[in-house]
């Protein structure tokens, strides 16, 4: 019995001595500092397409009305007769920064900057730079009326947020990469 007590006492002494050793080990000089923070992702956008009020042609203007920078393209489709290869007709007149892509769509050659604040509008493609118009000629005898002819020109507009990839623009899915590579990135704010 005495031996057991002695053993317990020895173990107790050992634990005590170990705890003293651990206490000495953590006594190193140290310091630390922590900080955290973040920012919210801006994804999305808003554009407005107007085609003018003249029924004889469409003056296509796109304005960036969102907060993010956008790149835009337009598809312009006329009636089937327009695509007669023997008698090609000019449907679209473009100038300024518009360019035609390999996919037949029209790409605006600049990033349209978004609204910096509520009062300041975003950038637009400008009036008179992209015109869609059709003209047909009929030979009619004197006293004869030209036939009623109804046709439609369809304008399809698509935009995508300008996502940067280093010094280039990221090509959105389904867009012509050659045309996107030619889009000018704003060099300044």
């Amino acid at each position: 019995m005495k031996k057991i007590n002695k053993t317990i006492l020895m173990l107790f002494a050992l634990v005590l001595s170990l705890s003293v050793t651990v206490g000495a080990t953590v006594a190193y000089f140290s310091d630390y500092e922590q900080a955290s923070g973040g920012a919210t992702l801006q994804l999305g956008g808003k554009t407005e397409l107007s085609e003018g009020d003249d029924s004889n042609f469409k003056d296509i203007v796109i304005e960036n009305t969102g907060e993010t920078d956008m790149i835009v393209r337009v598809g312009i489709y006329g009636p089937d007769e327009f695509y007669d290869s023997d008698n090609p007709k000019n449907l679209v007149t473009m100038k300024g920064d518009w360019m035609k892509g390999n996919d037949g769509m029209y790409y605006y050659g600049k990033v349209l900057k978004g609204k910096p604040d509520e009062q300041t509008p975003g950038e637009n493609t400008g009036v008179g730079n992209l015109i869609a118009s059709l003209s047909f000629e009929w030979k009619v005898e004197e006293g004869e009326q030209p036939p009623d002819y109804y046709f439609e020109v369809t304008v399809v507009h698509e935009g995508s947020q300008a996502i940067y990839d280093g010094t280039k623009l990221k090509v959105p899915k389904g867009w012509d990469k050659d045309a996107v590579a030619k889009i000018k990135i704003p060099a300044s704010q």
Binding site: K46, E48, H157, G159, S160
Partner: peptide, 8 residues
């Protein structure tokens, strides 16, 4: 003018 608004 008729204006089409596209939101992404």
């Amino acid at each position: 003018q008729e204006v089409t608004v596209i939101t992404y």
